[in-house]
Amino acid sequence: MNRRYLIPLALAALALTAGCAGLLGSQPISDERLDEEPPSPYVWDNDVDAHITITENARFQAVYRLDDGSMELFRRDGFGGRNAIPVSAVRYRYSNGTVITGTEIRERGGEIDRSRSRVSVTTPNGTDGGQLAFTSSSTPKRFALPAFVNGSYAVVLPPNRRVEVFPFGTVDPGGYEVISEGDQRIIRWESVEADAISVQFYLQRDLTIFGGAAAVLVAVGLGGAFYYKRRIEALRKRREELGLDVDTEDDEFRDDPPPGMG
């Protein structure tokens, strides 16, 4: 075989095998990612089934109260499929308050594996319930995730973010309340029965910037309309001066009766 075809074929084979491995098999997440420190302490002591804190660097920290000993973590794509979400700083809290790291979950008989479509977490042997926490990435000014557990939810926005002004702020599903705590907003649902929750938020200064831009556009539009109106008036006067707008009628088109018949 010609040598120039060997490298492209090798690259294609490597990509194919890597894709098959991602599609068909699960791979463990590294101990370093599992055990790294979360950006801030997890809010274990809360009165909801899912507590999500969105940070300013487009990340979030989630604490879920488990009904059983397993959970699958994923996002839905635009075609109805699932994609695994990146997780780090995984922690499990027993009902008695003891907190263990991701590697300790494995050491005690649990599992944390990642495939192309989901991250599968199984809690240690003999556990039923408890709380699972992890850190993951979000999107600037928008948070969206499937509702992994049923029940009550709380989403804490970064400081100075708001959701009150549509369309800059939107919340789904409905039936929520917005609570103010200092410079932060907390969105709460007493019960979420939807498949997913999503929150689009904005900075206070975004409205000021938008309002200023809208004012500039209105001023430009009014100035342009006034300019063209003046131009049209000037052209009309010019036509009148040249006699182009003087109405003339030929006698043959007049409506008067013929001479002698009036």
Score class of each variant (00 low, 15 high):
D255T: 14
F74A: 00
E240T: 06
D251E: 09
R3N: 14
D250S: 11
H51P: 04
I179W: 01
V163P: 01
A13E: 09
I29N: 03
I179E: 04
R162W: 15
R254W: 11
P167E: 07
D195P: 11
E252G: 13
G262T: 15
A133C: 08
D250C: 12
I7K: 15
A18V: 12
S136M: 02
V216S: 09
P39L: 00
R33P: 00
F143L: 08
V216R: 09
L34Y: 06
F79W: 10
D250Y: 11
D250T: 06
I232F: 15
G102M: 02
R236N: 14
N160Y: 13
P173I: 12
D67E: 13
G169W: 11
A219M: 04
Q200F: 09
C20K: 08
S30E: 09
N46C: 13
V90L: 08
G169A: 12
R254C: 13
D183T: 13
V63M: 14
V99Y: 04
L73K: 03
A62Y: 01
V87H: 08
R142S: 11
L235C: 05
D250E: 12
L203C: 05
A15W: 06
I52N: 10
L244T: 01
R161V: 09
D35F: 09
V119K: 00
W189G: 02
R162V: 10
P257H: 01
A225T: 06
D206C: 05
P41C: 04
E193L: 06
S40D: 10
D45Y: 15
A213P: 15
Y153S: 00
N150Q: 11
P159L: 09
P140S: 04
S30M: 09
L217T: 05
R91H: 05
S26W: 03
S70M: 02
A196K: 06
Y64L: 08
I100F: 11
E193C: 02
A89K: 03
G78A: 03
A215Y: 13
T103A: 05
A18Y: 11
A89V: 00
F79E: 08
D245V: 07
I179R: 02
D183F: 06
D183H: 08
Y92A: 05
P38K: 02
R239I: 09
L16T: 04
Q131A: 04
F201C: 02
I209C: 07
P258T: 08
V149Q: 10
K237H: 15
P41H: 07
V48D: 15
V48P: 15
Q184M: 05
N46W: 11
V216T: 07
D183R: 12
P39N: 05
D35H: 05
L132R: 01
D67R: 08
V90S: 10
I112P: 03
H51D: 09
M71Q: 08
G102A: 06
